[in-house]
Design a protein around this nucleic acid. Structure first.
Lengths: 345, 345
DNA sequence: TGGTCTCGGGAAAGCGCTTTCCAGGGTGAA
DNA sequence: TTCACCCTGGAAAGCGCTTTCCCGAGACCA
């Protein structure tokens, strides 16, 4: 059915080898006349190379894989944009896989990408805290790397991987410090699921800043929930359920992810609690629409698109060099952005 | 380097054919004992099939491609989520390509996906109005379909494709009607780029509703701009620049995409114009955060994730049937959602 | 009991490419 | 003029898998 290279070669009156060299590049050169004839034949017949066949013959594909929790989440959307665009610039196609934040799904996805022989796998979701899950994933990735695959992580997945590392802990500390400076003392923390490493990192940053003014995390009301809008709603609902009196209420709710904070804002609005007058709210990530929310969300700015781009960049540069070179880490600064949801300083 | 099926076969003491049949499925069955032995060997050696090799031998891959303007845009993010999840359920991997809304890029992307021999291509972006661009894309897709590829479109790309068709025109008319019923008469319309078909469809819907009360589009201030936050900001800036007097100002700005409306809101906020008190604002699409904006955005609800899912579903069902069956269209209802940005009815 | 099926196994022929290896002709140096 | 190269083109050997085709062994029927 499809036009093959062989047909192009016959049409141009050359050998298969020459056609391949003329069309799809090679170390060897082809005479100008023949090359032109081959290209003309390819054009005329509408030849398109068969990528799987090329992959088999070359023992390498022109694809990479990106693993993330949920492509519809604006955090991952921005990350994916940076990754796919950088890949496209390098002539690579990107497979995007939603893991839902489930380590078992992630493991299966890694195996699928390995089977596809993608050149690189970008771990864009959070690392997991469960040692068993991490071990299984590490084992699958080790196999993949042993066969020449590159792996890079966005946020901490282990020291053995090239990593793009935004300063989650420092950012959380800086945001908390800013809130403390504004005079807030009763801070409620809505953190992410325990299974994600990033939750602990951010929580640790909050604790760091609290300690500087003689406070501890234990003194603060806390809720754990999924990194989602619904998660944020539920968490603040539980929080206010536990603390019905107006005087027990936290002065500010610090949600450790913006999509969560969006849910927090929605729930407070529904309960008729003014933000920031009744309770202030802060988030984390600075997703694209954070500044446009009602009210504009105080958060911690992360260069999301750049993180995705750097992750792919690390993977591609790894291809060229010695595969066994030590893992590199690109540290990215993050900084709190104060907006209306925490009142005017 | 990698473990091959041949190694597994040797390790299990069977032929290549038997190993293939036992591990990767086939019409033929393999005896229980042998099959178990082969599976055990595969497990022990850590065998992972080489997908490109399978693709070559089977003449079909387990991948699909999704073309969209920008994966970081929440509209396309939701669409992509529906598409990737549905594909994953069918055991397929999804390649996501950003076209930036450029027909030339789209053409190149189609060729790349064709070269990859993906099973299906989902056109998730808007169709183009330029006949030359459309012709080139149609030609590339025709080639792809001639070789058994399935093509489905979200929104109109031409009658020859299986299509998921939200009622853009009807939705725009319904929204406009609702605004007129609220008493608004001076409607400014911020529409999308002329090169996208969807712009014209939505604009036509607005015109339909205006006509019902004896108004025409020509009487209304209009701006064309990109479907982006910045586009919305710029458009409303130009609009207000042209209409400096408070009495000339539109009563409501109807942006024909939510991300645009977000920019409109931001610009009005910056200029100190109250929404909806000074100027009301409405959008289109009902992106996930539309209800959480400042103020909550009146818009037209589209089942984005479902649209992505249906598109992939159409493509997959097409595989099973006669490839030359007539194109199907799944029409999806859309409905206006009135929120605070247009005031209380 | 002979003949016809069916079933499970293996050998081998591809799938569409890339790349090695070989051959022949032209070039420059001796 | 000869030898040693280099350069370009073609033949052919794979890449790792699926699938056809063939074969022998039982099962089943008459």
């Amino acid at each position: 059915m499809a036009v093959t290279l062989g047909q192009v070669a016959r049409h141009a009156g050359v050998s298969l080898a020459t056609a391949s060299r003329a069309l799809n590049g090679s170390a060897r050169t082809v005479g100008d006349g023949l090359a032109a004839r081959v290209r003309a034949s390819a054009e005329e017949l509408g030849y398109l190379p068969n990528a799987p066949a090329q992959a088999l013959a070359r023992a390498t594909t022109a694809t990479i894989g990106v693993l993330l929790h949920d492509i519809a989440d604006p955090y991952f959307g921005a990350l994916a944009k940076g990754a796919t665009d950088t890949a496209a610039d390098a002539g690579l196609l990107t497979m995007v896989l939603n893991t839902g934040g489930d380590p078992e799904v992630e493991l299966r996805c890694i195996r699928m990408l390995h089977a596809q022989r993608v050149r690189a796998i970008v771990l864009a979701g959070s690392g997991y805290t469960d040692p068993a899950a991490t071990a299984a994933i590490d084992a699958a990735l080790a196999l993949y790397r042993a066969e020449g695959g590159a792996v890079t992580a966005v946020t901490d997945h282990g020291a053995e991987y090239d990593t793009v590392l935004p300063d989650n802990r420092g950012g959380a500390a800086a945001l908390t410090r800013a809130l403390l400076e504004q005079g807030y003392r009763r801070l409620a923390v809505v953190s992410g699921p325990e299974r994600f490493r990033v939750s602990a990192e951010r929580l640790a940053g909050v604790a760091d800043a609290l300690a500087e003014v003689g406070l501890t995390l234990d003194q603060m009301p806390q809720e754990r929930t999924e990194f989602s809008r619904i998660g944020g709603r539920d968490a603040v609902g539980r929080l206010l359920g536990r603390l019905p009196g107006a005087e027990e209420r936290p002065e500010v709710v610090l949600a450790l992810s913006d999509v969560c904070a969006v849910g927090v804002l929605a729930e407070l609005r529904e309960r008729g609690i003014d933000v920031p007058g009744g309770i202030a709210v802060a988030g984390f990530d600075d997703i694209p629409l954070a500044a446009d929310l009602a009210p504009a969300l105080t958060t911690v700015g992360m260069p999301l698109q750049r993180m995705g781009a750097e992750a792919v960049g690390l993977a591609l540069s790894r291809q060229d060099e010695d595969a066994s070179a030590p893992a590199r880490t690109v540290r990215l600064p993050v900084a709190p952005t104060l907006r209306a949801s925490t009142g005017t300083p």
